[in-house]
């Protein structure tokens, strides 16, 4: 039994080195970051209640399989910032308010860390989610039609109706409007703006072009 026990001991020691180094360290250090006071309030800003619900829709729809949310540091690559996906690299503090940090591993579509500063029109988002390949020809993003429903136009066209003209246009007298899930999701996307300046990153921020 002696050998078995020494084998177990060594396995455990070596195994725990990475466990302590990565898991416990992350939890104790990064997991206890505090928000900071910026010139315009507490940073990173809180998500609205609707955006928090929207993050759940984001998780449920698996947007993370194709979209990352991280801008890489400048000593590794400039391309993320050159592509205008952000103005500065992401830092751990940026994820402070996230229930789940949607870092992502694969970029089938653009990075979304700052999509809320880049695209500001909710109707654009609705339209894009409904028929991506009509909005961006050649897109391989799947349609999220199940987040919308068609209804009879009651008097006036509702403010959130998608201006559809292509193959998915509703029959006359009908309109396509977002469900609550779609509204939450877009509220979340619109709040994805990591463009505030944090004290710890200001040194790395490139001068404005």
């Amino acid at each position: 039994m002696n050998r078995l026990r020494s084998l177990f001991l060594i396995i455990i020691l070596l195994f725990f080195s990475s466990w302590l180094g990565v898991v416990v360290y992350s939890y104790l250090e990064l997991g206890h970051f505090k928000s900071v006071a910026g010139s315009d309030g507490i940073l990173p800003p809180y998500y609205s209640g609707q955006a928090i619900l929207g993050a759940r829709v984001y998780a449920a729809s698996g947007c993370m399989t194709c979209h990352t949310q991280q801008i890489r540091q400048l000593d590794v690559t400039h391309s993320d910032i050159d592509r205008k996906w952000g103005t500065r690299p992401s830092v751990a503090l940026d994820y402070l308010r996230d229930q789940t940090a949607f870092l992502g591993k694969r970029r089938m579509g653009p990075d979304l860390s700052n999509v809320g500063s880049r695209l500001t029109d909710p109707i654009w988002y609705y339209h894009h989610l409904y028929e991506p390949d009509q909005v961006t020809p050649g897109s391989i993003m799947p349609s999220y039609r199940y987040l919308f429903h068609m209804q009879k136009i009651q008097g006036e066209l509702s403010a959130q109706a998608i201006p559809l003209t292509g193959p998915h246009a509703p029959p006359p007298g009908y309109e396509v409007v977002p469900t609550k899930d779609a509204q939450d999701l877009v509220a979340y996307l619109l709040s994805l703006k990591h463009d505030y300046t944090l004290p710890e990153v200001s040194a790395e921020t490139p001068s404005a072009p």
């Binding site: 990475s18 990565v22 898991v23 992350s26 939890y27 250090e29 990064l30 997991g31 206890h32 970051f33 991280q70 751990a92 503090l93 940026d94 994820y95 402070l96 308010r97 996230d98 229930q99 789940t100 940090a101 870092l103």
Partner: peptide
């Protein structure tokens, strides 16, 4: 424990996901 049963602060989740 850290990512789904209980959720630790988002700032620490990245390294643990990769680990």
């Amino acid at each position: 424990l850290m990512l789904t049963w209980g959720k630790i602060q988002g700032s620490a989740q990245g390294p643990i996901q990769c680990w």
